Computed example of a mutant assay.
Amino acid sequence: MTRRLFVANIVVVALSVLLDQLVKAIVVATMPLGSAIELLPFLALYHARNTGIAFSMFAGLGDIGLSLLAAAVLAVVLYLWWKTPAERRLTHFGLAVIVGGAIGNLIDRVRLGYVVDYVYFHTPAFDFAVFNLADACITVGAIIILLDEFILARTGASGRERAGSDAD
């Protein structure tokens, strides 16, 4: 990984963590637990605590178990990030966003024993899980990586092919 790419990735991670923690602090400071603010007919801010991981899975593992599990997953993602070739810039961006989201939720887990969630999509017939910006970062980062790996790399639009054609 080049120095410039490393610095750009660190900035993406830092911004993801900072924005995540800032929004969570605002929600905790201004909304009582369990309160909701309807923004649209299908979207609300809803102050919730998630004692599990995504969709409250593994809630029974406890704070230490979940923190260790999250740290292990983060270590694997960091290893994959380190092994990703520098020319795969879009994948690097996706991994940086994932790492930022994972760190944001890990901070909550270690500091509070739960993760603060606040985005609530719902319809009269369907309730989606309450989530936060860190969760969104993890999901969007994974989509970016899949897009780069399975679509852009095959069509020649990824950073890998561009870097090769720039050298010609």
Rank of each mutant, 00 (worst) to 15 (best):
S67C: 08
G141A: 09
A167T: 14
T155C: 07
I144M: 15
R4A: 12
V119L: 15
L74D: 07
E87G: 02
G52N: 13
T155D: 06
L33Y: 11
G52S: 13
A136G: 14
V7W: 10
M1N: 05
A153R: 13
R3A: 09
V73G: 13
V13L: 12
R111G: 02
L19S: 05
D168K: 14
Y46E: 05
V23W: 09
D20N: 09
A134T: 11
V119S: 02
V140D: 11
L112M: 09
Y114T: 03
T123H: 07
V17P: 08
P32G: 02
R89Q: 13
L147N: 00
V97Q: 09
T139Q: 09
A96E: 00
S165M: 10
G34T: 08
G52T: 13
I151D: 10
V27A: 06
T123I: 06
V99A: 12
D166Y: 07
V17H: 08
V97R: 00
L147I: 07
L106T: 00
L45W: 10
N105A: 06
T30M: 03
T51A: 09
S35D: 07
R154S: 10
V27F: 06
A96D: 00
F6D: 06
V17I: 14
I145C: 11
A142H: 01
G101Q: 08
L33C: 01
L69E: 10
L40S: 03
D63F: 01
L69R: 10
T84F: 08
A102H: 00
H47D: 02
P41F: 04
T30V: 01
A142M: 15
